[in-house]
Design a binder for these strands. Structure first.
Lengths: 185, 185
DNA sequence: GTCTATAATAGGATAGAC
DNA sequence: GTCTATCCTATTATAGAC
């Protein structure tokens, strides 16, 4: 009876990397198996519902990661500007400076969109809500805060798409830098 | 010997719709067959290289469409503001007011990215170049024009991602409206 | 140029041994 | 908890009739 070779969280993180690199349809069980180092049957032991289950676990991990590294810091100590800087730094690392895709962005394409629509909407909404709250605290009106927060998120998503389309992370890096300057504007 | 039931351009347009709705990996031959109304063998008659060939034909069609409806008007008559408005109106129709995905955005995910990287880079670059040229004509410096043009494109791509993530086309519509206001800013 | 039929392979999922 | 072996279906692709 071999003990688990790697903890479940590490398995989920590797699945995340696989969905990030290949998208939902492109992440075959063979790829997911290779990425985790686990055989297909082991994956089904962790995730009885198969690939859909794996993606839901990845969405859980994203919720957790965002809560800890991106949304949490917005409510921590420091000026609004400083708190936003912490989120931006965390996101910059997560997306490897623009070289990685966004899993949420990958999941809104094709049939996986319908499959995970509720989770996707909740994830994007929570992100936008947290940013809008910060902007209100920084002195913006509720309406402006909402627009700014949406622009923040769609700017990142669009920059990731463009960076991979142009095969050049520079647009992403520029967007990340600008994010900080626009808070009070 | 039945005559071709629909012209080749119409076939390609329907393929485009299929890659738009399902992404590259998600667009199976069965889906592509259903979307075009052609049997698999007929598709292979038009596109001997299979799915990859079909996607290249779709990329050709996108180049053509962009050239005629988006990039062309930028070089036509009228003020820079009026010319940009024509592009925006065309794009708004193409993306069905934010309810449709961008094929280029779908193709930058997963393995299809590597497969079509050169075409994708060229398509995004041509789009950005045409916009930057307009911005220079409108009085912006070359450096600012480039940034503005990139922001224009990534704003649209990000808005399409967010609109589908939130299942709400409103962010897209707002971005489209704002595109026009920022030209001379 | 279109179709039906079919081959060949890859994908998702399960059984059962250890 | 992990593995090998297997199953079934979907997917890509081709052959050949009309």
């Amino acid at each position: 009876m071999p003990a688990p070779s790697i903890p479940r969280e590490e398995v989920v993180r590797r699945l995340l990397g696989c969905f990030q690199a290949h998208g939902y349809d492109g992440a075959s069980l063979a790829e997911l198996s290779k990425a985790t180092g686990l055989g297909k049957s082991s994956l089904y032991h962790y995730f009885p519902g198969g690939k859909e289950d794996m993606a839901r676990a990845v969405l859980d991990e994203i919720d957790r990661w965002m809560s800890v590294h991106a949304l949490g810091p917005l409510k921590g100590p420091g000026s609004p500007r400083q708190r936003l800087a912490r989120m931006v730094a965390a996101l910059d690392g997560f997306y490897a400076g623009g070289r990685c895709a966004c899993v949420l962005g990958n999941l809104v394409v094709g049939d996986s969109r319908r499959l995970f629509q509720k989770r996707l909407r909740a994830a994007f909404a929570a992100w936008i809500d947290a940013l809008a709250e910060l902007a209100v605290e920084a002195g913006q009106s509720k309406a402006h805060a909402r627009v700014w927060a949406q622009d923040f998120v769609l700017g990142i998503e669009g920059a990731l798409v463009l960076a991979r389309g142009l095969d050049d992370p520079v647009p992403f890096r520029r967007v990340m830098r600008r994010c900080l300057r626009t808070l009070v504007a």
